[in-house]
Design a protein around this nucleic acid. Structure first.
Length: 359
DNA sequence: AACACGGCCAACCGCCTGAAT
DNA sequence: CATTCAGGCGGTTGGCCGTGT
């Protein structure tokens, strides 16, 4: 014999709550406290299921609920936590005072998810949508063909179709590689900078690196005679620590609105940095975040044109920091991040070129 | 003005887990 | 130990509302 039923299933009201019902529920809880939702509706004089009462209270009537637009910090927190926790809305809500799981879930599905998709990022894995990766578009992009690309040693005379295939194979193989699992059992995911911060920095072990490298020459089934795995010394070089760290000169992108002109300076600084090995970033599975042929300049220009206050976009934006940023400002921030990922994508394609020794 | 469409979000649905019996 | 359900959770829905035509 189990518990007795909490309530009669029939005859209970459903649908939107009226102000009168709200008042009854609030009055009752203020007087008696909440809990025992089974008997609460009857005691409060409500023709509602206890479950409905609990939801109404926790999602709407609770006095400590924060109303209004999500701040940028909250949004960033949601993204970071989601990258670690997934759709654990209650767990995410627990770290956002005043916000309910339902509210966060709705905000994710209506705002953040769409934005990530627009950026070419899978909102589930927070990784680049490698299924959509078209390296040929990268190779033909204006940046890739620019002199700066040459400064990276990017080889441009490659077979784009082969690269596309390689990326696809690499992605599918990597996602199934049991050797790329954290000690706590969490699988490494592509392009997930937040996860690095929230979890453990990715430390590719020697065997991991070897395995990964072995996967790269995935043109082998194509009987490509130029397919040459990395040597041991090259692997060692690729295994340098802090592979998850992006060059310091880019760090401000994560903290404040993008200065329209700064990205160019950052790029120059980035390239000029001594002792920088692009291979560190390429080999890092966290760095494969990508959007194919994203035109940062034109997009930024478009956003500035649309903004009601262009000046605010041309300087370090304090409004961005205090949470009153506009959609455009937010998008510029994302674009700046996307800009980073575009570099990494180029480096990644170069890595594929090198690994396959294609000329 | 009327209609269509899409975004938003409160509320519901169904499943799972642990506690009560 | 088996049964039953409360509470909690994530997924989904449906109605409201703003916008475009």
């Amino acid at each position: 014999m189990g518990r007795s039923p909490c309530c009669e299933k029939n005859g209970l009201k459903k649908g939107p709550w009226t102000a009168e019902e709200d008042q009854k529920l609030v009055d009752y809880i203020q007087k008696n406290g909440y809990g025992n939702w089974r008997t609460l509706p009857k005691n409060a004089g409500l023709q509602r299921c206890g479950k409905s009462c609990r939801l109404r209270w926790t999602n709407y009537l609770r006095p400590d609920i924060k109303r209004g637009r999500f701040s940028f910090e909250e949004e960033e927190t949601i993204i970071q936590l989601h990258s670690v926790l997934g759709n654990k809305w209650s767990a995410i809500a627990a770290r956002l005072p005043g916000r309910t799981d339902n509210e966060i879930k709705n905000y994710w599905n209506t705002h953040i998810r769409k934005r990530l998709l627009r950026m070419g990022i899978d909102p589930v894995t927070h990784s680049p949508r490698l299924d959509l990766l078209d390296i040929s578009s990268i190779l033909s992009s204006s940046f890739y063909s620019s002199p700066r690309a040459n400064m990276f040693g990017v080889q441009q005379s490659v077979n784009p179709e082969l690269l596309r295939l390689a990326a696809s194979l690499l992605s599918s193989q990597h996602n199934q590689n049991p050797n790329l699992v954290h000690q706590d059992g969490q699988v490494n995911q592509f392009g997930n900078p937040h996860q690095v911060q929230e979890n453990h920095p990715v430390q590719l072990q020697n065997q991991d690196c070897q395995n990964l490298i072995q996967e790269i020459p995935c043109c082998a089934p194509l009987n490509n005679p130029n397919c040459v795995p990395f040597s041991t010394s090259e692997c060692a070089q690729l295994m340098e620590p802090n592979v998850d760290q992006f060059p310091a000169s880019f760090s401000h992108f994560d903290e404040q609105a993008c200065h329209v002109n700064d990205w160019q300076n950052d790029l120059d600084n980035f390239i000029a940095m001594e002792n920088y090995s692009y291979q560190q970033h390429i080999i890092d599975p966290q760095s494969n975040l990508t959007s194919s042929d994203f035109d940062f300049n034109s997009h930024l220009s478009n956003l500035s044109t649309r903004s009601s206050s262009p000046a605010s976009l041309n300087s370090n934006s304090t409004s961005y920091i205090n949470g009153s940023s506009t959609e455009d400002e937010r998008e510029i921030s994302y674009c700046s991040n996307l800009f980073k990922y575009e570099y990494q994508e180029i480096l990644y394609s170069n890595f594929l070129c090198n690994s396959m020794n294609i000329v």
